[in-house]
Simulated assay, not measured.
Amino acid sequence: LNSYGALILSYTTFTLPLSVWMMKNTFDAVPDELIEAARIDGASEWRIMVSVIFPVTRTPLIAVGLFAFIRAWNDLAFALTLVGTEFQTLPAGLALTFLGEFQNSYGEILAASLVTSIPVIAIFLVLQRHFVSGALSGSVK
């Protein structure tokens, strides 16, 4: 409690199973012929992962990574219960700062919410080209 480790462990515990489940079909869809061809060429298992499987599954990996980041960024329950005020995430800090029994500063909390959503929007805009290229890669022969 009261450490970044508590938050990291809780986010990993609840995000990792869903991320693995989302990626299972993607890894199952990788053709066995690609892996066998790399083995015949003498590639090690690590080299097969880095040079064959990761490039083929890049778009779903980025999508799942973005999902995990957004889930951890927007979490409120763990940040309020597991850590004190010095280790809280931004949503918990916003809730404790601007909302209370005798105050409801809706204008300020909306402005602060907009500012805290900027990193998520920036990361999505940077990774957007991977989503578009992955969606269009199978449409052109």
Rank of each mutant, 00 (worst) to 15 (best):
E45L: 13
A68M: 02
P119R: 03
E86V: 13
M23R: 06
R47E: 11
I123H: 12
R39Y: 09
V120I: 14
L66F: 14
D32G: 15
Y106W: 15
A111H: 12
E101I: 09
Y4M: 11
L90S: 00
M22T: 10
V83P: 06
V56F: 15
F87T: 03
N74L: 09
S105L: 15
E101P: 12
V64E: 09
R58T: 15
G5W: 04
S117E: 04
R39F: 03
I62K: 04
I48W: 09
T57H: 08
I8E: 02
A112L: 01
F54G: 07
T13D: 08
A135M: 15
L136C: 01
A79G: 10
T116W: 10
F14S: 00
A79R: 05
Q103M: 12
M22S: 15
R58E: 06
V64R: 02
A111C: 06
A135K: 09
E101S: 12
E33P: 10
I118W: 11
A111L: 14
P119D: 02
V30A: 12
I109M: 02
V83Q: 05
V140P: 03
F102T: 13
Y106A: 09
R58D: 00
L61S: 13
I123L: 14
A135V: 12
P119Y: 05
R71G: 11
G65T: 01
I40P: 00
L16E: 05
K141R: 10
Y106Q: 11
L34N: 09
L7V: 04
A38S: 12
L34G: 06
R129M: 04
T89I: 14
L9K: 08
I118M: 03
V83K: 04
N104P: 10
L82Y: 11
I62W: 08
F124R: 06
A77Y: 12
F102I: 07
T12N: 04
L94H: 01
W21V: 14
G93P: 02
R71D: 08
Y4Q: 11
G107I: 02
